[in-house]
Amino acid sequence: MAESITMPQLGESVTEGTIIRWLVQIGDKVKQYDPLCEVTTDKVTVEVPSVTSGVITEIVVSEGDTVQVGAVICRIETAEFSPAVWKLIQEHGLDSSQLKGTGRFGRITRNDVMEFLEKRGALVEDMGSPSEQGELEEKVPVTAVRKAIARRMSQSKQEIPHAWTMIECDVTSLVQFRNEIKEQFQRTEGVALTYFPFFMKAVTEALKEFPILNSQWAGEHIILKKEINLSFAVAADRALYTPVIRNADRMDIAGLARTVHQLARKARAGSLTIEDVSGGTFTVNNTGSFGSVLSAPIINYPQAAMLTFEAIVKRPALVDGMLVEIDKVNMCLSMDHRVLDGWVCGQFLQRIRNRLESFGTGTDLYSYSV
């Protein structure tokens, strides 16, 4: 059956949107949550995801056209298989995206499944060792999400003149404090207390003092954002998503921890909404979670900067004439050099460092201002 995809509501006061670019063509197969097109309004530019899986049968709105919220922009023939075909796919543990449907609008038939199984069986019988096969490379299909990421990253690097700086921070007191309270926090809140919400809190306070970091380039002027909406990166299913914590500066550390957990879980479950990923004004990334100690992030277009927090590592240091072991973390900032210069970015990073180094025993996780 055909499913009509409509122009979504992209904000409380938004009544229309303009199709910038279609990411699919007629005949393309899509899965639920795959991006269909880029839409812009006077407030945000977002990707519209598919609400169902199936085949694109009609594109109603052309690139550059502006339509009202609720108007049909394309139609999808839903990829519903008969119960018998679906059961057959499940019994053999197949991925339906690997199957080429020969039915109407690309639907998968029983014959399609059986032919795939026969070919796979013949392939297994013929397979020898890698050296016998001579297979030295493999072609991996590029998903729609990966294509969207590639396009965004290319746009950022081509349009934004990136500059980069790094500062080191002593977080020994923070590490000790977090180790003291993490188990109690887990029992009380039901989520793990990582270092990330502490990092976010320090960033939001610094952004209030240096609002130029919370901006974007707009040609003839620079747009200073009044709200502090933190985007953060979440890796899920071989893709990268950037959900947004709105008005992050109005949250305490505990609230940030809960919100990060909730949005990360939605990202990995593939249930993020347009509202969840739109409106970000500054991006932070916890690259240290997988061991990185140094990175040069690509700015989340069209924002003016992106900050990564690297792995916390133990290093020797002289304190009051004594050699001791302290915990250090690197903060790496990529900036849009059209908007930002080294001086203000250096001041911004120093303010974050001062805040992080002040966290320790006695820090109130439930205070708006810490």
Rank of each mutant, 00 (worst) to 15 (best):
E3M: 08
I5S: 11
L10M: 14
G11F: 02
E12G: 09
G17Y: 05
T18S: 08
I19N: 09
V24K: 09
V24P: 06
Q25W: 10
Q25R: 15
I26V: 15
V30Q: 12
Q32P: 02
D34R: 01
D34Y: 01
P35S: 09
V39A: 04
T41G: 04
T41F: 02
T45D: 04
V46E: 12
V46S: 15
V51D: 14
G54C: 04
G54W: 03
V55Y: 15
V60F: 02
V61H: 02
T66Q: 15
T66I: 13
V67L: 05
C74D: 07
C74M: 11
R75Q: 14
S82W: 03
L88V: 01
H92Y: 13
S96C: 10
S97H: 07
Q98S: 14
L99W: 07
K100M: 06
I108E: 00
K119C: 04
R120W: 09
R120K: 13
A122F: 09
A122R: 14
D126A: 04
D126V: 00
M127P: 07
E135Y: 12
P141Y: 01
I149V: 04
M153T: 07
S154V: 07
Q155A: 00
S156G: 05
T165V: 13
I167H: 15
T172S: 14
T172W: 06
S173R: 12
F177P: 01
E183G: 02
F185N: 10
E189Q: 13
V191C: 12
F196E: 01
F198C: 08
F199K: 09
V203M: 09
E205M: 14
P211K: 12
L213N: 02
L230P: 06
F232Q: 15
A248M: 07
A248T: 07
G255Y: 05
L256S: 02
L256F: 00
H261Y: 13
R268P: 00
A269G: 02
G270Q: 08
G270D: 00
I274S: 09
T283G: 08
T283A: 07
T287A: 09
F290E: 03
G291V: 02
I298W: 12
I299C: 05
A304Y: 03
A304W: 00
A304Q: 07
M306N: 08
M306W: 11
I312Y: 06
I312T: 13
V313P: 03
A317G: 11
V319S: 11
D320S: 05
M322S: 14
L323M: 12
N330D: 11
C332F: 06
L333D: 03
L340P: 01
G342S: 07
W343N: 12
C345A: 15
G346R: 10
Q347E: 13
F348Y: 08
F348E: 02
R351M: 06
I352W: 04
F359N: 00
G360P: 05
Y366P: 09
S369H: 13
